[in-house]
Simulated scan of single mutants.
Amino acid sequence: MGFLFVLSTLACMAAFVATYYFFVRTTTGQYIDESALVEAATINGPTERATTQFLDWLPVISVAIAAVVVLFVTIMRRRWKSAGIAVAACVAANLATQLLKDWFPNRPFRGVQTIELNSLPSGHTTLAASAAAAVFLVVSPRWRPLAGFLGGTFAVAAGVSTLINQWHRPADVVAAFLVVGAVMLPAGWLVLRTGKRWNVEDGRGEHWASSRVWLSLSTLAGVVAAALAVYSLIGIASDFGQESTTNYFWAGVSLIVITGYLATVAATWLFGLNARRRQSP
């Protein structure tokens, strides 16, 4: 089981490096990323106020949700070590994002008109995703499928909102998801090691929060986003050399949604596999 956590962590780190290199260091990547950001201006008219308010409240909402759930579980279930690990990992993920943003050099000029200051990874997305991940780690196995779907949806909504408001490019959001994964996966392994007694299926039948419907919804969202990505790419190819449309924007949204829900499905499956193994004789 530990091997799967190591492999998943390394995959997040490798994907982060690839995301940075392609979308920041190459001309093609910069053009795709910047085009999505520019085209967001045609979308944010009717949605700007709602997404701005959401982003303004996002830090408070993220901290409040995580604090309430973690404190409740800690006090009621006495999972002190697990709560400490989850909170420490949440802080570490946000610190890592800020350090990476400062350490990375400005975006090199590749012939694409863009703001040179580095904005990768997205701090707002990291906060939302890490708070959701902290909740996911401390709840019992029967609640994790529901917590994964709701947390993944919350993180995806935060990431898409930053794009709509033109605060961040799609790659910034994807990089934030990967940072959270690289930090929270080792923390999850520690939670499983320190909470062996409660990190098992209770054997009392399927609970509504552990229903397969939550994993199915995450998978469905990823499939729909993949279809949208294909449609957008076809539109980009057919409109090549013509006036800009919103195909790059929707392709960027698809990338965010696919990454966010893919992480949700992977984490739910990985932790669920551990719970089932511990239950078996």
Rank of each mutant, 00 (worst) to 15 (best):
S254H: 11
V112S: 06
R144E: 07
F177R: 08
F154P: 14
S82L: 00
E116D: 12
T19I: 07
L255W: 00
F149N: 10
M1N: 05
E201H: 15
Y21V: 14
A227T: 01
V180S: 08
T9M: 04
M13D: 12
T268C: 10
F249E: 00
R142T: 03
V179F: 10
V135K: 03
A86L: 01
V160R: 03
L262I: 06
T153H: 04
L215P: 02
G29A: 05
G84K: 00
G123S: 14
S211W: 04
A132S: 14
I164H: 06
I256P: 09
V253L: 01
L7C: 05
G148Y: 10
P186M: 02
A41F: 04
G45F: 00
N247C: 04
L233A: 13
L163M: 09
A83W: 00
D102I: 11
A92M: 12
L192V: 06
N274Y: 15
G188Q: 08
P108M: 02
W198Y: 06
G188H: 13
A128H: 08
T259D: 01
R197A: 09
Y31S: 13
S119T: 15
L10P: 04
V179Y: 12
A158M: 07
A221N: 04
V87D: 03
V183H: 11
A128N: 11
I234Q: 08
P145E: 12
G29Q: 05
G205S: 13
F240I: 05
A225S: 03
N94F: 14
I258E: 01
A132P: 05
V91H: 09
A50N: 00
A132W: 10
L233S: 08
V6A: 07
A225T: 01
L100I: 15
Y261F: 13
Q166L: 02
L71A: 13
P141E: 05
T259Y: 01
A89R: 09
R144L: 04
G2H: 13
E243Q: 08
L71C: 13
V183P: 11
T194K: 09
G151T: 10
S62D: 10
V160W: 07
F5Y: 14
A131F: 07
R78L: 00
E39L: 04
N118G: 15
F104E: 10
Y20C: 07
M184I: 02
R79T: 00
Y20K: 10
W143D: 05
S35Y: 14
L100E: 12
G188D: 07
T125N: 13
E201N: 14
